[in-house]
Design a protein around this nucleic acid. Structure first.
Length: 493
RNA sequence: GGUCUCGUGGCCGAGUGGUUAGGCAGCGGUCUGCAAAACCGUGUACAGCGGUUCGAAUCCGCUCGAGACCUCCA
């Protein structure tokens, strides 16, 4: 199935603050880099949003026929921690507390992150580089910036000279900031004295004695500045200039702004053509934060074991819920909203399965499936408007159900188009998958078949006491019987 | 305080100058022994105040409210 040739992909570029026609540097190849997790704790909702947003983009680009190299980093080297008494490597701190090797922590949470992403049906990136595995590249980049005169060493650390950079470049292109405002608005923080200017940022940081994770460098035993890893690894795997760089809006400044500055000096050109940023998530209208007690992990949602949650929400419910909002809008989580998404998802998935069973009628009138299809593609091409595309899929759902119920007919060509539309969008582009817990359990299937048959017999004898007893007992095991025209089905609640 | 974003019907959430978003809930109906499930039908909303316009949820201004960022946290 090919996309509507009439419409073309447009994406919102944070750099221009406009939707732009997507034109890769070297079609059909697309290079895409997305800021990945810091693996010092379990993945929470905030990790799911960019993962799902850029998974959608990855899937859609591939669907359009592009050959995509998708790089998403694992951040596992040291930076200072905000709420620590004195600066201390996040991973090192946790390691001391738990008496584990830092890389053991990294490994542990990386595996758990992967598991959560698999649950959400987020495709693995093409390359998933670790910052700790690219210390040499980062040091080389620091050297290059020093040689070009845009950084200076101070007490074993190396800082990027923002003021000098600003003479010929615009530090603030991405975030819309002005240097003089940055100078005057910066808070007073410890350690500022090493810097010539408060707007300067570290590209190499000398490690305090307490730091476990440290590497030798020409300047000190230490670790690279936060922004270095993305610049170095993006360049290594995607080149001096690549097509798309993604991440959360919270990373716009200073992280991505600084990446642009570093890479521009080191490589002589602005690194990225399209900067794309997903918006943030709120819970019950409130921002997510550890101090607010609402930083729910993905496992919390999947298990339902958190006081804010009325029930468990499956990975696909979370995924579908996120796709029902545009990626550049804030998204508010609440039990009510998630339950609504859960039901809507079931309706979509059921209809997608039912569509395969429909029978065509060559006499049937036009159902305008091609218009629905074109609108769905147009929505995706308009900066990945998945909520609009999903709305159109529900139009298709209405047709499926109406044919299924015998209220209308569909001709063979349209039925084929309808089946393709639902299959391609639901599974391939949106990345939804069936979560029917009954699948692949032959013993349970057999048992249920027997029980349902016994109840059916009782109902035919009008022995409703027995049939209702069976229904109630199963309900207490969280198994719901669904009586339909063509027999009784069941599902786990 | 500075920069920026947002405020849509009971809930979530698209739309961004003139035509139905969609989902969930509610209501009505079909089906059912009853119920559940499923399915069908159904709502004309756009923070407030002013302005521009033949016409504004959509543009402009102000007010109120919410959020993001403002560097050595990633």
């Amino acid at each position: 199935m090919n996309a509507d040739p009439e419409s073309k992909l447009f994406v919102y570029n944070s750099l221009s603050r406009k939707k732009e026609s997507f034109e890769p540097f070297k079609p059909p190849h697309v290079g895409m880099y997305v800021c990945g997790p810091t693996v010092y704790g379990d993945a929470h909702l905030g990790h799911a949003r960019p993962a799902i947003t850029f998974d959608l983009l990855f899937r859609y680009l591939k669907h359009l026929g592009y050959k995509v190299r998708y790089v998403r980093n694992i951040t596992d080297v040291g930076h200072l921690e905000n709420d620590a008494d004195e600066g201390e490597d996040k991973i090192a701190k946790k390691a001391r507390v738990e008496e584990l090797e830092p890389m053991e922590i990294v490994q542990y949470y990386t595996v758990r992150y992967h598991h959560n992403m698999d649950q959400l049906n987020v495709l693995r990136p093409s390359i998933e580089p670790h910052a700790s595995g690219h210390i040499i590249e980062q040091i080389e980049m620091v050297k290059s910036i020093l040689e070009k005169g845009f950084a200076y060493e101070s007490q074993g650390s190396v800082y990027f000279d923002v003021e000098k950079y600003s003479k010929n470049h615009h530090y603030g292109v991405l975030s819309g900031r002005k240097l003089d405002e940055l100078m005057s608005n910066t808070r007073e923080l410890a350690g500022q004295t090493e810097k010539r200017n408060s707007a300067d940022f570290a590209i190499w940081k000398k490690a305090e004695p307490a730091h476990i994770m440290r590497w030798p460098s020409p300047w000190s035993d230490g670790f690279p500045g936060w922004h270095m890893e993305c610049s170095a690894m993006g360049c290594k795997y995607l080149g001096d200039q690549f097509d798309i760089h993604g991440g959360g809006m919270d990373l716009l400044f200073p992280h991505h702004e600084s990446e642009i500055a570093q890479s521009t000096i080191a490589n002589g050109k602005s690194p990225v053509r399209y900067w794309m940023h997903n918006n943030m998530i709120t819970i019950n209208g409130q921002k997510m934060g550890k101090s607010l007690g609402n930083a729910l992990s993905l496992d919390d949602f999947f298990s339902g074991k958190h006081e804010l949650l009325a029930q468990a929400y499956s990975p696909m419910t979370i995924r579908f819920f996120m796709l029902q909002a545009h990626y550049r809008s804030t998204l508010d989580f609440s039990n009510e909203a998630l339950q609504a998404a859960d039901k809507g998802l079931k309706r979509l998935m059921n209809a997608t399965a039912d569509a395969m069973q429909l029978k065509a009628d060559s006499q049937a009138a036009d159902q305008h499936v091609d218009a629905i299809r074109a609108d769905a593609y147009q929505a995706m091409n308009d900066d990945l408007n998945s909520p609009m595309a999903i709305a159109r899929l529900f139009d298709a759902v209405r047709i499926v159900n109406s044919v299924k119920e015998g209220h209308s007919n569909i001709n063979p060509a349209e039925l084929k188009l309808l089946q393709e539309l639902l299959n391609v969008f639901v599974f391939e582009i949106l990345g939804l998958q069936s979560e029917d817990s009954a699948q692949d359990d032959h013993l349970l299937d057999g048992l249920m078949e027997t029980i349902i048959q016994l109840r059916q017999d009782a109902r035919q004898r009008k022995d409703y006491a027995t049939s209702d007893l069976i229904r109630d007992k199963l309900a207490s095991l969280k198994i719901v019987l669904k009586d339909g025209k063509e027999g009784t089905g069941w599902e786990r609640k």
